[in-house]
Design a protein around this nucleic acid. Structure first.
Length: 936
RNA sequence: GCGCGGUUAGCUCAGUGGUAGAGCAUUACCUUGACACGGUAGGGGUCACAGGUUCGAACCCUGUAUCGCGCACCA
């Protein structure tokens, strides 16, 4: 192959991705005899565009998948997208408004949904294509969407099943209402944000008492028209005597006083230290007040409408006004009637709709709720360690959430999503199920579908008959009989929580489920621990635990890896509004996908947020280029691939790099097994750059510049050995460039097709050398250390140039006074790497006075400078060094003189310290001599 | 308020009891036959603070400060 000077990722990446797809290397075979490894992708929103969070997330999944393939696993990485109810609907609504100036209501439900589907068809694959650019090795033949027909049937089935068990019920409750999206939200979708507001005090007259007033503190005066009581703590001596009396509510001012006379009640909930100790009770617009009202049988008075504007019940002055505008109006009105006694700035937390970013309005409404199933099993699998969280501190957060769990509000007043599979009809009490419907229900159940009917008595004496079914035939009969389907749809997460098995053909016992469930790893951000991870665990235990699946453990995954959150280099969250979120595709264009992957992984330690800096990607690009050029260097030596290393011809540097490779294989494998991706990347980086390129390749040139063809060939064999291992170790991180070089260097040529012959993807993951191989190659710690100290000698020798201000590029003469026999190879390596013109070996060398030198266990190295030395400067430098050495000696001496130390410390540590003292003392002696030599 | 995590070189971070590390940035030198997206050699840190345990603490314990996150919140 002809290798260019710099690596150009663009063409290479496209070529190999197409190649992988064409050869179906990503495809999972459920009939394979290999052990299974599986991941289901956290499905990105169909509205999504690839951002740095996706890059982090999916690179990790790809690394895990590719490594698993190389270690001989049958890998399923199952991709797909999420319909993302609110987000998608809002996006299409916005577009509709912009382009056609219409609302969804103008179109009607059906026509609007057609629009959304059309939008999904057009844009839904954008993020999928972006993942392909990143190199993701997903099995695209199994791509799923949470609103696929089969998937939707799973959602319905689960709903009906839970409904049958009375775990799903309809209730009129206080919910988190988003006035912009105009739907209920779950508690998890509400984000508390600190807000600057005001705490207002206003007074109301106590009826039937002479000049007695109560002062009430509130942050929400606009809800005064909805107050149906005033509460005080019964233990509060200031007010207890007033319980049972009434006060006059100031608003709405245009209704008779009798209609706004409200009682003073006593309730333990009231904190008499807060505000004035008097609480206004607005049962329809506050969660706590709702509970108080229930305890005291107070009426509920709604004064704010679904869209966040004031209802006519709030009085004609406020009707139709936005809630925040109304707040100001009410304050002014109180002020003008002289009732406002205080108005002071107040910081407090307000719940915001996560999606629409506006304050939530607690609102009384009828919604569907779910009592979470399988709570205990879900808790135990983590606390008992059968399912492991990485890092495991998230297990505590998970447990805490489970222990404080509230029923899940699962209905949404949206159109885009899974419509609730309930059909109902009002009937006179006592009416039985129509025969045709009863027959349809029987048939549905016989066919393996679910159909359940319930009757719910109504306050007016009628009853509501509810059919829950996932059978289309059955629901059609109900429609004919005048039943109507519930208009709401389900929370998006009510479909996502089934992802690990609904994507694999559940409820049937499919080959795919048998092979790949439970999945091995889940990789996701901690921000969706409650939304998604926890609920998937429950769904696993609730629906995969039955006899029909016959699983030893129905858990959905064995390991959960929580990524950090990607922030910018100032530590701020990436966001569109801040404009600090780089477009990964631009980065891929500029630096290459491998560079982006490597840079991201290198800076993303387990369990920490990632401060992203484009410099990291630049580092990745530089690294790819280094890899490219190291291979180019091997290529330029010519010759065929050398796959036979001749042990007899190995030199000290060959042995050193083979030992080093062995260490690298161990540490990279270990790090990956422990999900320490940044550690694995750093270990590879260090091995390849600092050890292979900086030392081995440079030392290699001693052989390659020579004339011994056998030894040259053997050096090439070692290079090929190292490179073929390095490429495989790097493949999970850098899939494209490693594939290109794997083929380009010819390493694929001799391999069986399914073991690296066709693609590096299927090449075996490198194993450390076994003892036989170590012995055959003559590798040992002693030999390794000896060569390491040779390199230390070289570094120190190069440093000598500074003394005479000799440029590193200038060839000079060094003299070596060895302590042991120096073989020809080592001699040449030292000479070459010192960039020495010559390196005479003179065992009895007597240097001219003041010649700079270093002393090592290989011997003493001199740089004769012939009077080029600034003696004063050199002396000062040596004095400084002497000071440092003395400090070190003092430290070690103090330890060794401490009787406690000598008695208690392990012998090995003691010996280390003693050796250290000897070394430092030798060094001190040498430096002292050098100083003495500088004296005239 | 409760819980969790962080505080180590100018920056971003490794380092879990035995000589303080990496990358970037920085200084000097080098365009040498793989690579300037490069090479060589440097400089730079009383490991937030205070106690304690230990022969020995960046590391273990206690407390404090500070930053961040999660949960719960008093209207």
């Amino acid at each position: 192959m002809e290798i260019s000077k710099a690596y150009d990722p663009g063409v290479v990446e496209e070529k190999w991705y197409a190649f992988w797809l064409q050869n179906q290397f990503f495809k999972a075979d459920e009939n394979s005899a290999k052990p299974a490894y599986s991941i289901v992708i956290p499905p990105p929103n169909v509205t999504g565009m690839l951002h740095m969070g996706h890059v982090l997330n999916n690179t990790i999944q790809d690394i895990l998948s590719r490594k698993a393939r190389m270690t001989g696993h049958e890998v399923l990485w199952l991709p797909g997208t999420d319909h993302a109810g609110i987000a998608t609907q809002m996006m299409v609504e916005r577009q509709l408004k912009k382009e056609e100036k219409k609302s969804r209501h103008d179109l009607g439900r059906e026509a609007f949904l057609e629009k959304v589907w059309a939008w999904k068809e057009k844009h839904g694959s954008i993020i999928i294509n972006q993942l392909k650019k990143l190199g993701c090795s997903c099995d695209w033949s199994r791509e799923r969407f949470t609103m696929d027909p089969e998937y939707s049937r799973c959602v319905q089935r689960v709903f009906v099943d839970l409904y049958r068990q009375d775990l799903i019920y309809k209730g009129r409750r206080m919910v988190n209402w988003c006035p912009v999206s105009q739907t209920a939200l779950s508690d998890e979708e509400v984000e508390m944000k600190p807000q600057k507001g005001f705490l207002y005090h206003f007074k109301v007259r106590v009826l039937g008492m002479e000049d007695t007033w109560l002062t009430i503190a509130t942050t929400r005066p606009e809800t005064i028209p909805g107050d149906t009581a005033v509460a005080v703590n019964p233990k509060d001596t200031r007010y207890a005597h007033l319980i049972g009396k009434c006060v006059l509510r100031p608003f709405p001012a245009d209704i008779p006083e009798t209609a706004r006379t409200i009682p003073i009640i006593g309730d333990e909930h009231v904190d008499f230290a807060f505000g004035t100790g008097v609480l206004k009770v607005t049962p329809a617009h506050d969660k706590a007040d709702f509970e108080i009202a229930r305890r005291h049988g107070l009426p509920f008075l709604e004064v704010i409408r679904a869209d966040g504007t004031m209802d006519s019940s709030a009085g004609s002055a406020l009707a139709g006004m936005d809630r925040f505008r109304a707040r100001k109006e009410v304050v002014e009105a109180l002020r003008s009637m002289g009732a406002l006694t205080e108005e002071k700035p107040y910081d407090h937390n307000v719940g915001f709709s996560q999606r629409a970013d506006v304050p939530i309005e607690p609102r009384l409404s009828e919604q569907w709720f779910l009592k979470y199933p399988a709570l205990e099993a879900s808790r135990l699998c983590v606390s008992e360690g059968r399912m492991r969280f990485h890092p495991d501190r998230w297990a505590k957060v998970y447990e805490h959430w489970l222990n404080n769990i509230q029923d899940w509000c699962i209905s949404r007043q949206l159109w885009w999503g899974h419509r609730i599979p309930i059909w109902s009809k009002m009937l006179p009490a006592g009416q039985t199920v129509d025969g045709r419907l009863a027959e349809a229900i029987r048939q549905a159940n016989d066919a393996g579908d679910l159909a359940v009917i319930k009757t719910i008595p109504q306050p007016d004496g009628q009853m509501r008959m509810e059919l829950a079914t996932n059978s289309e035939a059955c629901s059609k009969v109900a429609l004919v009989l005048g039943f109507e389907q519930d208009p709401d749809v389900l929370d998006t997460w009510f479909s996502s929580w089934l992802w690990p098995f609904a994507t694999m053909g559940w409820p049937a016992k499919t080959g795919m489920l048998q092979k790949f469930y439970p999945t091995t790893d889940l990789v996701t951000g901690p921000d969706i621990l409650f939304f998604w991870v926890a609920r998937m665990i429950m769904a696993g235990y609730a629906f995969m635990g039955g006899k029909e699946q016959s699983l030893p453990d129905p858990m959905p995954f064995r390991n959960v890896y929580f990524t950090g959150i990607i922030r910018d280099k100032q530590g701020r969250k990436m966001s569109k509004t801040l404009g600090n979120s780089p477009d990964p595709l631009v980065l891929i264009e500029k630096y290459g996908a491998d560079a982006l992957r490597f840079g991201t992984m290198r800076s993303a330690p387990l369990g920490q947020d990632v401060l992203f800096d484009e410099k990291d990607v630049e580092l990745g690009r530089n690294f790819c280029n280094k890899l490219w050029n190291a291979c180019r260097f091997r290529q330029m030596q010519g010759g065929a691939i050398q796959d036979e290393i001749q042990p007899a011809l190995l030199n000290s540097d060959d042995r050193w790099i083979l030992s080093s490779l062995n260490t690298a294989i161990r540490s990279v494998t270990l790090a990956l097994n422990e999900y320490q991706f940044s550690e694995a990347a750093a270990a590879l980086y260090r091995f390849f750059w600092s050890e292979y390129c900086d030392w081995y390749l440079e030392a290699c040139k001693a052989v390659l510049n020579g004339n011994d063809a056998d030894r040259k060939a053997n050096s090439c064999a070692v290079m090929d050995f190292i490179l073929s291992h390095v490429l495989r170790l790097f493949h999970p991180f850098l899939p494209f460039i490693t594939e290109e070089l794997w083929h380009g260097m010819g390493y694929s040529a001799d391999m069986p097709s399914n073991q690296g012959g066709a693609s590096i993807m299927s090449a075996p993951w490198p194993l450390p050398l076994n003892e036989d191989e170590m012995e055959q190659f003559g590798l040992s710690q002693t030999a390794f250390d000896l060569t390491s100290s040779k390199y230390q000698l070289i570094t120190q020798g190069r440093n000598l140039r500074r003394i005479g201000n000799i440029p590193s590029g200038k060839k000079v003469k060094y003299v070596f006074k060895p302590v042991m026999a120096l073989n020809e190879h080592d001699h040449e390596v030292i000479r070459l790497l010192l960039n020495a013109e010559s390196l005479p070996v003179q065992p009895d060398f007597t240097p001219p006075k003041g010649t700079p030198s270093v002393k090592t266990n290989w011997g003493e190295l001199f740089l004769p400078l012939e009077g080029h030395i600034d003696k004063a400067a050199e002396k000062a430098r040596l004095q400084l060094e002497l000071g440092k050495i003395e400090a070190e000696i003092l430290k070690v001496k103090q330890k060794l003189e401490n009787p406690g130390f000598v008695q208690k410390v392990p012998p090995q540590v003691l010996q280390e310290h003693q050796q250290r003292l000897v070394d430092w003392q030798a060094k001190m002696k040498h430096v002292q001599e050098s100083i003495d030599n500088l004296q005239d």
